[in-house]
Design a protein around this nucleic acid. Structure first.
Lengths: 161, 161
DNA sequence: ATATTTCTGCGATATTTATGCAAAATTTGT
DNA sequence: ACAAATTTTGCATAAATATCGCAGAAATAT
């Protein structure tokens, strides 16, 4: 079920960034529509794991928000999916010793790095993002195929070196 | 009472930026201590008016946050000590070859890096800070225990891997 | 395969938060 | 200053959310 769970978490993020949802029951309905029926208890756990925040929109109505969203700015303006970014230009990964370099279209490094961080890949010690380049520091024992596989979940259509 | 209300709203903001509060009842207690007794109903309205958000800290515990706060970054006009930052979430150090990666709570990498720089640890050639990650480049001959000892003065409660 | 860990559902609550309504306080207009 | 209008508040209660114990399913590790 791991894969299903990860997908469900992604769907949750998509839903709350594409529309205003203010109650878990509403979110449950949307999830069911999207083919991920679940229960309120599980959703509550998911929201905590995603560090999703409950705030208010300009009208004072309650809305769920991703933590990196400031105020009521919708993520659709700023947070593109990697698929969307990929349309703008390739995202590539290259290795050197215990480092990996990810190239993104200009301006998108921070966002991709955020997704990589959130994938919690154990072999990745940390990332630092510039404008269109991300430096990834790997564990000394990291095996590149593994890292590449895990990265592929976050950064699809990656062009290996 | 309008004046009192405005003051109370300010006090609410002060409280939630100076400590982690996860429940309205707790916030009520703090308000009372500060000389602004109120009720849960009023507080709920105040929070909506302030557009205060309820999210989760690193440990998944619930916390109230100002909307303009990124993630769990706390407002601080003064430079927070690492001890203070540590309360917001662990600061950890990991090594890989000639590099060390320090993870901090979101938004605090620059502060911690500044402290590290100022410790003038000879084996540290330099640091680069992102939002929540610091890359440290070590001298080729650096010995990790030494570096860790020196770092511990700056970054207490460090968790080696 | 077997053991171990993680995840989920299912109630079943306990806890927390929001709100309708009426009263009290405050402001405004005259 | 008085009355009307507006805002604020408390109370009671509704609504929403978090959590618990537990059993079984699924994934991971040995």
């Amino acid at each position: 079920m791991r894969q299903d769970k990860d997908t469900r978490l992604e769907v949750i993020k998509m839903i709350i960034t594409s529309q205003e949802v203010g109650r878990q029951d509403d979110l449950l309905n949307e999830l069911a529509k999207a083919g991920f029926p679940s229960t309120q208890a599980t959703l509550s756990r998911d929201l905590r794991q995603l560090r999703i925040v409950k705030g208010h929109n300009e009208r004072g109505e309650q809305v769920y928000l991703l933590p990196e969203q400031k105020r009521y700015q919708r993520i659709s303006d700023t947070h593109m999916t990697v698929q969307q970014i990929n349309r703008l230009g390739a995202v590539s990964v290259k290795f050197s010793l215990n480092l990996a370099i990810v190239q993104t279209p200009p301006g998108h490094a921070a966002h991709v790095a955020y997704d990589i961080d959130n994938a919690h890949i154990p072999e990745i010690l940390g990332t630092i993002a510039g404008d269109d380049t991300i430096l990834i520091v790997l564990d000394e024992t990291a095996e590149r195929p593994n890292v590449l596989n895990r990265l592929a979940e976050v950064v699809p259509e990656t062009r290996k070196e």
